[in-house]
Amino acid sequence: MTEQELLDRARRGDEDAFAQLVEDNQRRLYNLALRMTGRPEDAEEVVQEAFLNAWRGLDFFKGDSTFATWVYRLTSNAAIDHLRRARRMGEPLSLSGDEEDAATELPDPDPGPQEELERTERAAALRRALDTLSPPHRQVLEMRALDGLSYEEIAQLLDLTPGTVKSRLARARLALKKLLAEDGNFSAFLSSMETEQGKGGGGG
C-alpha cells in the first residue's frame, strides 16, 4: 500500500494503517529524538508524543510535504518542547519501571569484547567529530547520512533549495573527513576500509 493510501485509511480512523506508518518512520524519529534529548527514555516519550500529535492532527496534513517530513518536524518540535519543559520544571518524576528498562538496555557484554570496545570508541569519536562541525553542516549530514532523508525532504525541512542542500552536504562531508583524519585511530580505520573496498572492486 502506498503512503497516500495508508494516510487516507488512517484519516478514516483505520489504526492498522497508522500502525504501518509508525513502523515505517519510527527508527528515524527515535534516533532524531535520541540525538536531541540524549536519553533513551526521553526519546521514547518524545516519539510517542509526536505520533499521537500526528494521529490527532491528520486532518491538517494536506500533503504539501511527505508524511516523513511532517512527522520529522512534529518529532523535532516535541523534543524542543520536552527540553523546554524539563528546563522549566526540573526533572519530572520518573515513571515506574524506568530503572528496570534502563537495566535491560545495557549493551550485551557477550559478542567479541575487543571488537565491541573498538566499535564503541569509534562511535564516540565520530559523535565528537560531528559535534565539532558547524551546526548547519552537522544538520544536513545527520539528516542525510543518519536519517536517510532525500535532498528534497531536507530542503523542505530547512527551507533551503535542493541545490543548497547538495553543495552544503559536500562541504559537510569533507569537513568531517578532515576532523576524522586528525584523529589517529580514525584515519587508520578509514584507510583500512579503503583498502578493503579497493580490493573488493570499490563495492558498497
Binding site: Q26, R27, Y30, N31, L34, P40, E44, V47, Q48, D101, E105, R122, A123, L126, R127, L130, L141, E142, A145, L146, G148, R173, L176, K177, L180, L190, S191, M193, E194, Q197, G198, G202, G204
Partner: peptide, 21 residues
C-alpha cells in the same frame, strides 16, 4: 571510498528503537 566508509560509519550511529515503542 573514504566518504563512502564515513557515511557507513555515520549510519551505524543509529540505534534500534525499543521493540515496545
Amino acid at each position: 571510498e573514504q566518504l563512502m566508509a564515513q557515511d557507513q560509519l555515520l549510519e551505524e550511529l543509529n540505534e534500534e528503537p525499543p521493540a515496545r515503542l
